[in-house]
Simulated scan of single mutants.
Amino acid sequence: MTISTTKKLLGATGAAALLVALAACGSAPEASPSGAAPEADVVDGFKPCLISDEGGWNDKSFNQSAKEGMDAALEELGVEGIELESTTPNDYAPNLEELVAQGCSFIVSVGFNLSAATVESANNNPDIDYAIIDDLADNDFNNETDAPNIKPLVFNTAEAAYLGGYAAAAWSAESGVNKVGTFGGMQIPSVAVFMDGYALGVEKYNEDKGASVDLFGWNVADQEGSFTGGFAANDTAKQTAQGVLDQGVDVILPVGGPIYESAAAAIADGGSDVLMLGVDSDLAVKDSGVSDITLVSIMKAIDVAVKDATVEAAAGDFDVAPYIGTLENEGVKLSGFGDFEAELPEGLADELSALQEAIIAGDITVESKNSPQQ
């Protein structure tokens, strides 16, 4: 894989072109392969495995995207694998032990929360290759991965979120509300990085337009904001969303897998015209039930990263150097605007395009203390 930390935004001369440039589509097979002849080289005994975070495989977000990537790799390689779903943090270590016991030769852990358990398992099993999503596996913060057999798959999501924040501010300014919001699941870097980029995008819009769109739910400087404490779509998440909605926002960004469902429920209960942004995957495509209130999504190509890492490991070419998804390498991007394409503020598509180009060229740096560092 190509590693890049260069940053960039996107756009087009029209909203339709923006859709083509930014949208990510397609879903990977649900099932493991039926034993078709491999289309790529596979070392003897290769057995790839995947362990989820507690959100589950149907979270319409990072777990589901990782599973789609693994399923696609299994089909391409013509091998069998194991995918274990975690329902609570107490499942992480036992599930990793089970994968080791089942003879897995490559294990992908989905999410920052699995970092400690993954590092311990990797150090105890040096002959197994590991990858982890959304974490550098540097739990002692010495700028080195804590086990020599772990490949981090991380994403500089602040770049794409910057575009999302700019678009949200433009929408709210056009409506005359001039208030946008956000809230997260757990306050961890892979969540806060979305909120940082979103906030900075709102600031950029205000700067460029002489506007005064207010942001509720996150303060970049203080790194303080609204969080549910987990990734479950429950009453706590709904109450957290409602707390932000009560500020009068008309666009909200829920960051944390299934918690978007709680935001959608709070919006429905209020009978308002509030729109939300999706994260990780194209939410309007993944969940048609919320497409009518999803303005746009801030995406990470987790599926592609997992598939590519698995195929490399299968060929015996496993490289532990971190993969960092950026706008430049399309590891992060903005989706299309779906049903809202025709309603976008005039000139927004071109503005987003220019911003993306400036980020990729290095003329704009989206600075988030939560972004992965090379």
Rank of each mutant, 00 (worst) to 15 (best):
N219I: 12
I252W: 03
D44N: 12
E144G: 06
G362T: 09
D350P: 15
G338V: 06
F340E: 13
S262M: 04
L355Y: 10
V100T: 01
Y323T: 00
V119S: 10
G14L: 04
G55M: 12
G270M: 04
M276P: 03
E54P: 12
I82T: 14
N139L: 07
E80S: 14
I128N: 00
K8T: 12
A237I: 06
S61T: 02
I132L: 14
S61V: 03
G81Q: 03
F194P: 05
I133Y: 13
N90H: 07
V366R: 01
P152H: 00
I51D: 08
G229F: 10
A23F: 09
D222W: 07
F155Y: 10
N329C: 13
S121A: 13
L22Q: 10
A21T: 04
T145F: 05
P126E: 08
D269W: 07
G14S: 11
D129P: 01
N124C: 05
M186C: 05
G45S: 03
S4W: 10
A167C: 00
E367G: 07
T294D: 11
E224F: 08
L275K: 12
A15V: 12
M186E: 09
G278C: 03
P148N: 04
K47F: 05
A321M: 08
D273R: 09
A237Q: 15
E30A: 15
F183K: 02
G56H: 14
I324S: 05
A241C: 11
S353I: 13
V110I: 14
A314D: 02
A158D: 08
K7A: 09
T326G: 10
L283F: 03
S86F: 08
L327E: 06
G243A: 09
I324Q: 10
P322T: 02
E97Q: 09
A160M: 09
C25Y: 14
D339P: 12
P372K: 02
E159G: 13
T326W: 07
S297G: 00
D363W: 00
A170K: 01
N329Y: 04
A168R: 01
M70I: 11
P189G: 06
W57S: 15
N139Y: 09
K47M: 09
E30F: 09
F337I: 02
G338I: 01
